[in-house]
Structure formats: structure tokens, C-alpha cells
Design a protein around this nucleic acid. Sequence first.
DNA 1: ATTAGTCGGTATCCATTTGATACCATCACG
DNA 2: CGTGATGGTATCAAATGGATACCGACTAAT
Lengths: 143, 143
Amino acid sequence: MSPGHSKETAHPARAKTAKPRYDVYAPDCPTRLVLARLADKWTVLILGRLDRTPLRFNQLRRAIAGVSQKVLSQTLKGLERDGLVARQVFPTVPVTVEYAITPLGLTLQDTLQALGRWAETHMDAVLAAQRQYDRRPPAAVRR
Amino acid sequence: MSPGHSKETAHPARAKTAKPRYDVYAPDCPTRLVLARLADKWTVLILGRLDRTPLRFNQLRRAIAGVSQKVLSQTLKGLERDGLVARQVFPTVPVTVEYAITPLGLTLQDTLQALGRWAETHMDAVLAAQRQYDRRPPAAVRR
DNA sequence: ATTAGTCGGTATCCATTTGATACCATCACG
DNA sequence: CGTGATGGTATCAAATGGATACCGACTAAT
């Protein structure tokens, strides 16, 4: 089968120009920015863990071991701005701050949790692929 | 596929201490690394676009407008190493390189495409949340 | 009274990553 | 001969990430 350099096969069906329709494959589409936030290691873990019950900042920090305060703080701020988590401050002492998932965030939770579950269930397959890849010689150019 | 198939275990009587159970919430779990690859803007777009039909490097580059050659190259290399895409070189001239999604990658595709679709369908809600967030005053400390 | 600890963060610094740009060899086409 | 297509690498600047230190206000233990 010779995959000749066929003429550019314009991808069909994506080119709906009707209405303010968004397309993540358009380089200037604002969805790219949103996608960048969703498709983030920490976002997956945070929204995955905010499973119906709100958590305080340090509770979250301990639940997601390995995240630094700065990055957790930044990520939560971004998620709050995008309407995916709600931040509520209680004037206790010391101050208590609770983070809860919003209804909008809930519509995303299943998908994000699926990502985490995929990593867990397919870890062995990925490790096997990595070993096989690393075992092969460094791609000498054969002629 | 048998995850427990290990060549170097020569002690059949020795019960394995449960299956290698992975947990993305454990900081040292290797799933964190895999999750970091999956939860990536470009991974979502690449695997989402490798929709059953293989694409050449530059086809992919044009399909995902906005990605630089370097990043596309790096990301594809990583995806190949993790067994999610297969790279095939055809000795044409100029050389042709095709990237196809693997069976393993296919088990992930729906979830990743769901992410992209979420961004597209909920973009308006996110934009509204952002406007509301940005409108409020810069959180003066009230006492 | 002193010390240590909790709370939810900033501030600062440096390493890693990312992205833009240029460049490469080979060949086809006009 | 000049241009364009192929799939990349090289180089450098900019943005990001993570580790660490620090903060103010208060509590609990010493």
C-alpha cells in the first residue's frame, strides 16, 4: 500500500459556519484556552476529588499529595474563574476556605474521572509499550 | 494481555501481594506521569483527530493549526512511546511518515473527544463565569 | 511567657518546558 | 533556476512549574 502524497483531504463535516459555533481545531477559538485548563494534570485530580463534598484548601492539598501550595492556589483560582469550582470563605479563626464543585463542574466530572481511571487501568499496557520502545536501538538510519 | 505476566518471577508458590494497584492520588504512583501525558492540550487534539484514519506529519500539523513543529514532534514521540499512536515510515521521496492511533489509543479516544466537545458546548457558560469573576472588585479585605 | 502548630495563602528564586524561528537534505514541478 | 513539499532538528527567548521561605492571627501545649 503506497500512501502517495495525495491532495489535501480537507476534513469534512467540521466546517459549519453557522452560528457562534466553537471549534477546538480552530487556532484562534477561545475553546483552546478552556481546553488547556481542562486538559491539565492538576485539574483532573482536583475536580475528580471534589466529589460532591467540599474540601478546605489544606484538605485538598493533602488529598492530592505532591501538589505545591502555589500551583494548587493558582489552579483553584483558574477553576473558580471558569465557574468550575466555588470558593467560600468562613470568617473563623484561622480563616476557613471551602472549595466545592459547581453544577457546571459536575457536567465535566465524569469525563475527568474517566481519565484518571484510564491511567490506572491501562498503566501496565503503557509501561509495557514504554519498555518495548526503549529497548529498540536509537533508530539508526538504514539505507 | 496479562498484567501479571512477569518473566523474572520464578516462584509460583509465592502469592503476589495483590495486583499492582495503581492510584493517581498517590504522589509516587507512575500513573501520575501517564496522566500528565493524557491531560495535555495537544494530546487531546492529536488523538481526537486521529479518528480511525492515519495522518502524515504535516497533515496533522495543518489539522491542528497552531501547534509548532517541535511540539508536535515531541508530543507524537511521547504518544508513540506510550503505545497510543503508531509511527510508520514509507521510503518514498520525500519520506512519508504516517501516524495512526493504536488499539490502546482507541480505548481512550472517546474520553478525550468528550473533553473537546465539552469545551465547545460549554464555552458560553465558561465565558459568562469569567466575565462575572472579572467584574467583581479585587477582593478588598473587609473588617 | 515561650514555643510550636494550623489556617490559607504570597513572594521569591531557579529549573524545566514551551513556543517561535531558522535551518537541513532530498526531490518534483514549472 | 527558483519554489515548494516532505519530516524533522537546532537554537534561543519567554512562560511556566515547583521548592522554599515567609506571613498574620490565633490556639494549644510547655
